[in-house]
Amino acid sequence: MTAATHFTAWLTTTASALDQANIDIVVLEDEQNDDNDWTSKGGPALFTAITNVPAEDGDHDKAQNEAADLLADAGWTTVGSWDAVDSGYIVTVERA
């Protein structure tokens, strides 16, 4: 039996974690660990984009909405809601 394919979109809102001034979105493939939790598999990003929302004092809700639009335009669909993490937010995504 093969494991299901799982992807996570990472919305980085922390200015010190970015290479540019605006919030970005990255999609990575995940793998299940021994506890059956999904963790980043590493490897190349499957999708990247930079929002128009500045990381410094930017509106995170606006960034999430723009990121969802950018993902949809690239053939990805968000599944569920955004969860806060240390560097911003994550959400599960699927190929549309």
Rank of each mutant, 00 (worst) to 15 (best):
E31C: 06
L46G: 10
A55F: 04
E31N: 11
G42T: 06
V53K: 00
A49K: 04
D59H: 04
A21M: 08
A9I: 06
L18N: 07
V53N: 01
T48F: 00
E29F: 01
S16A: 15
D69I: 07
T51N: 03
E31A: 14
D24E: 14
H6C: 08
A4T: 12
V27N: 05
A49D: 13
S40A: 13
E31D: 10
D61W: 00
Q20E: 15
G42F: 08
D34H: 11
A45W: 00
N33A: 10
I23K: 04
D30N: 15
D59A: 05
F47W: 04
W38V: 03
A9F: 05
E66I: 01
L11H: 02
A63Q: 05
D59C: 07
L11V: 02
A55D: 08
T5G: 06
K62E: 15
P44M: 11
D61Q: 10
I50P: 00
W10I: 01
E29N: 09
P54M: 13
D59G: 10
P44V: 14
F47N: 06
T5P: 00
D37L: 14
E56W: 05
S40L: 03
D34N: 12
D34E: 15
D35A: 15
W10G: 08
A21F: 09
E31R: 13
W10R: 10
D30A: 10
D24H: 04
P44W: 12
A68R: 05
E31P: 01
A55P: 00
D30E: 13
H60D: 12
V27E: 05
N33H: 06
V27Y: 08
A55Y: 04
D34I: 12
E66A: 08
Q64L: 05
A68C: 06
P54H: 03
S40D: 13
A68V: 10
Q32E: 15
A67D: 06
N36L: 12
S40N: 11
S16Q: 14
T8H: 03
A9C: 07
A17V: 03
A63K: 01
N33Q: 09
Q20D: 15
T13Q: 08
W38P: 02
A4Q: 10
D37S: 14
D59F: 01
D57V: 11
K41Q: 11
S40G: 13
E56I: 13
E31Y: 02
E56M: 10
N33V: 10
T39G: 06
D19L: 09
H6E: 14
T13I: 04
